[in-house]
Design a protein around this nucleic acid. Structure first.
Length: 587
RNA sequence: GGUCCCAUAGCUCAGCUGGAUAGAGCAACAGAUUUCUAAUCUGUAGGUCUUAGGUUCGAAUCCUAAUGGGAUCACCA
C-alpha cells in the first residue's frame, strides 16, 4: 500500500503545495459497509487544503485515480476517502506477491535476540502457569525469527535452593528408595510428590510445637524438618558428596520428566543455564558498582543501591554476610548471557508478579552502564487464574500440565470419533491427530489473549473446539487440503478476470500477513498472529461456502480458486506455526 | 500506605500509534447439507466501552481523578 501513500503525498504537494510525511497519511482498511478496500482519512488535510473534508477527499481521490492505473474508483463520505483498487491489481497481488515462495519472508535484520522462557524450579512438575509461559516464549521466538532476528532460546533452570532440599529430605525420610522405575511415576511428578509430603510433615511438626506452647512463628522456625532442610542446603553449598549425589539423582529424574513435557508441548531451547552454576555470579559486579559509586556499603557490610530517583526504593544487592541475593545472581546471569552471545536484545518471559524485580534489575544494569542494558525487556504476562482464584500447589488446586494435555487429547479424540471422518486412519495416525487437535485447542486458547492480561481458566468448562478456536483454523486447513488433493493446478492457466468479492476479500486478507508478523514482533504478542489467522480462516470459509472450486463455472475460475486455496492453506500453516500449532491434512 | 497492571455484550475476548453506525466467538433464538469436510455458513437478539472531568473538528483509544479487581514494595526466589 506504499504506492497509495506516496501518491497521496504527491497529491497533497500538487494540490495544496504542502509537504507532509508518510506518517501523516492515515491509511486504514475500508469498513465492510462501504465500497472500496483502502481508506484515507482526510480530516487532517483540511488544515492546509482550506476546503471541506469532502472536497479535499474528492480532489485527492481524483488525483489518485488519474495517476494510478491500480485505482479503479473512489467515493467520499465525510472525511473518509474510500479507494477501490482494480481487480487486476488484486489478482496480480495473488500471482506476484502471495504465491511466490518468498511471500512474508522477512529479510534477516542482522540482529540477535535472546528469549529466556520456561525457567522452572526442579522440585515439582509443570502446571498451567508454566504452560502459558512456555507457549508464549516459544511463539515469541518463532515470531521474532520470522521478523528477521536471529533468536537464541534459553532456559534458566532453578535447580538449587531450599525448595529442592525439601523434596530431597522428604524422599530420604519417607521415600523407601522409590524411583521413577520402581513406581512408574514420571520423574518430575515423583519429586513433586515428596515436596508435598515435606510440606505436610512440616505442618504436622508445627502443630505439635504450637500445642507445646510455641508461637506460630517460632514453630515455623523450630520445626526439625525445616532445620534439617536448611542444613542440607548448607551441605550442598559446601559440596557434600552424599547430598550432591542425591541432588543430581533427583534432578535427573525431573529433567527426564520435563523433557517429556517439553516434547509434548512442542517447545525447545538452544541453551540451558543452571542456577547451580550461576548463583555465585554477580559478586564482581558488586565490586564494580561500589567502585563506580553506583552501590554503597552500609555499616553492617551489606551493599545497597538507592533507586529513589527512579521512583523505586533502596534495594539490597548483597547480604551483610557477603552472600548473594536473587538480584545479585540476576545481574551476574545477565552479564554471562551477554558475554556468551552479545545479543542486541534480551527478553525475559516472566510473570507480572516480578514486574518490580525486573524494573530494578534493568535500572541497575543501565546505571552500571552495562553493554546490552538498553536491549533488556521483561515480557510480563498475566497470571492464569482458576474460578476459585489463584492456583496453589500446596492446596492441590494446580492444573497439572501433563494432565491437562492428556485431557485435551482425550477431548479431541471424543469429538473426532463422534464425527467419524477419519475412521480409515491407523491407530498411530489417529493418536497423532488427537494430539495435534488437542494441543491446537489448548495452545490457541492460551495464545489468543493479549499476554499481559490475566487469564481465567475453568477446568470444568472444556476448552472449545468451535468458533474462535484452534480446531476451527485447523479444520479450515484440512478443508483446503482436501480440495487441493482432488485437483491439480495447471500452469498454463494463470489469468483470471471475474474476481468475486469473496475472492477479493480473501486476497486482501492474505496480503496482510507480513504486517501481522511485523506487528506481532513489535508487540511481542502472539495474540496478534492468532487473531489474524482466525480472521483469515473466517474469510476463507466464507469464500469456500459461496464459491464452488472443483465445480467452478469454467476451468479458468477453477484454477484461480485452487491457487487462492493453496495460498490460504500456506498462510494458515505458516501463521499457526508461529504459534507453535500444527495443522492436519485431514480431520 | 507507595508503585505498577487491568476494567468493552450474560460469558471469553478483539479494537487502543485518536477517525465512519464499537466487532468476533460462546451461550439463546431462527435458518442453510441430493453439491469440494456442517469442527462450516447465514440471520435475529444482546452495549451509558466502570464513573466523572479534561484535550480535540473528532475519544473505547490520550491526560487527570475516583471506584472495583490483581500484583508488588523481604538480608525469599
Amino acid at each position: 500500500m506504499n504506492f497509495i501513500i506516496e501518491t497521496t503525498l504527491k497529491a497533497v504537494k500538487h494540490l495544496y503545495n504542502t509537504d507532509i510525511s508518510a506518517a501523516d497519511v492515515n491509511l486504514q482498511e475500508t469498513r465492510k459497509e462501504f465500497e472500496g478496500q483502502v481508506t484515507i482519512v482526510t480530516f487532517p488535510f483540511t488544515k492546509f487544503s482550506k476546503k471541506s473534508p469532502e472536497q479535499t477527499g474528492t480532489e485527492i481521490g481524483a488525483f489518485l485515480q488519474n495517476e494510478l492505473k491500480e485505482v479503479s474508483g473512489f467515493n467520499v463520505i465525510k472525511g473518509f476517502l474510500n479507494v477501490s483498487l482494480s481487480n487486476e491489481y488484486w489478482i496480480n497481488q495473488l500471482y506476484n506477491e502471495i504465491l511466490p515462495d518468498d511471500f512474508a519472508v522477512i529479510e534477516p535484520n542482522g540482529k540477535k535476540v535472546m528469549v529466556e522462557y520456561s525457567s522452572p524450579n526442579t522440585n515439582k512438575p509443570l502446571h498451567l502457569g508454566h504452560v502459558r509461559n512456555n507457549l508464549l516464549g516459544f511463539s515469541v521466538s518463532e515470531i521474532l525469527a520470522a521478523a528477521g532476528y536471529q533468536v537464541i532460546k534459553t532456559n534458566l533452570v532453578n535447580d538449587r535452593g531450599i525448595h529442592i532440599c525439601k523434596s530431597m529430605l522428604a524422599w530420604q525420610k519417607f521415600g523407601n528408595g522409590e524411583t521413577p522405575e520402581s513406581s512408574g511415576l514420571k520423574g518430575d511428578h515423583l519429586v513433586g510428590k515428596y515436596y508435598v509430603i515435606f510440606d505436610r510433615e512440616y505442618k504436622k511438626q508445627q502443630e505439635e510445637l504450637k500445642s507445646a506452647g510455641q508461637s506460630e512463628e517460632e514453630a515455623k522456625k523450630n520445626a526439625p524438618l525445616i532445620k534439617e532442610a536448611q542444613e542440607m542446603l548448607q551441605k550442598w553449598e559446601a559440596g557434600d558428596e552424599a547430598v550432591i549425589t542425591l541432588w543430581k539423582t533427583m534432578n535427573g529424574w525431573v529433567y527426564t520428566g520435563f523433557a517429556e513435557t517439553y516434547k509434548k508441548l512442542g517447545v525447545s531451547f538452544d541453551k540451558f543455564y543452571y542456577e547451580s552454576e550461576t548463583y555465585l555470579l554477580g559478586k564482581d559486579i558488586i565490586e564494580e558498582g561500589l567502585e563506580k559509586g553506583v552501590f554503597y556499603r552500609k555499616d553492617d557490610n551489606s551493599v545497597w543501591i538507592d533507586l529513589t530517583a527512579d521512583g523505586l526504593d533502596e534495594k539490597l544487592v548483597l547480604r551483610s554476610d557477603g552472600t548473594s541475593v536473587y538480584m545479585t545472581q540476576d545481574m551476574g546471569t545477565a552479564q554471562l548471557k551477554y558475554n556468551d552471545y552479545h545479543m542486541d536484545r534480551s527478553i525475559y518471559v516472566v510473570g507480572n508478579e516480578q514486574d518490580y524485580h525486573f524494573k530494578v534489575l534493568f535500572t541497575i544494569l543501565k546505571r552500571l552502564g552495562k553493554e546490552g542494558a538498553d536491549g533488556l525487556f521483561h515480557l510480563s504476562y498475566g497470571m492464569v487464574d482458576l474460578p476459585s482464584g489463584k492456583m496453589k500447589s500446596r492446596e492441590g488446586t494446580v492444573v497439572d500440565a501433563d494432565d491437562l494435555m492428556s485431557e485435551m487429547e482425550q477431548t479431541a479424540k471424543e469429538q473426532t470419533e463422534a464425527m467419524g471422518k477419519v475412521d480409515d486412519f491407523t491407530a498411530d495416525e489417529k493418536q497423532s491427530l488427537y494430539h495435534i487437535i488437542g494441543m491446537g485447542a489448548l495452545k490457541y486458547f492460551l495464545l489468543k489473549v493479549d499476554p499481559k492480561k490475566r487469564l481465567l481458566f475453568d477446568p470444568n468448562e472444556s476448552v472449545d473446539f468451535q468458533g474462535h478456536t484452534g480446531p476451527f483454523i485447523q479444520y479450515t486447513h484440512a478443508r483446503i487440503r482436501s480440495v487441493l488433493n482432488r485437483a491439480n493446478i495447471i500452469n498454463e492457466y494463470n489469468s483470471y478476470s471475474n474476481l468475486a468479492v469473496e475472492e477479493r476479500d480473501l486476497i486482501v486478507s492474505l496480503t496482510q500477513f507480513p504486517d501481522a508478523i511485523k506487528n506481532a514482533a513489535e508487540a511481542y504478542s502472539p495474540a496478534v498472529i492468532a487473531n489474524y489467522v482466525y480472521e483469515l480462516a473466517k474469510v476463507y470459509n466464507k469464500f469456500y461456502h459461496e464459491k464452488s472450486i472443483l465445480q467452478a463455472e469454467d476451468e479458468e475460475s477453477k484454477q484461480f480458486r485452487l491457487r487462492l486455496s493453496a495460498a490460504s492453506g500456506k498462510v494458515i500453516n505458516k501463521g499457526m506455526k508461529l504459534l507453535g500449532i500444527e495443522v492436519p491434512e485431514r480431520m
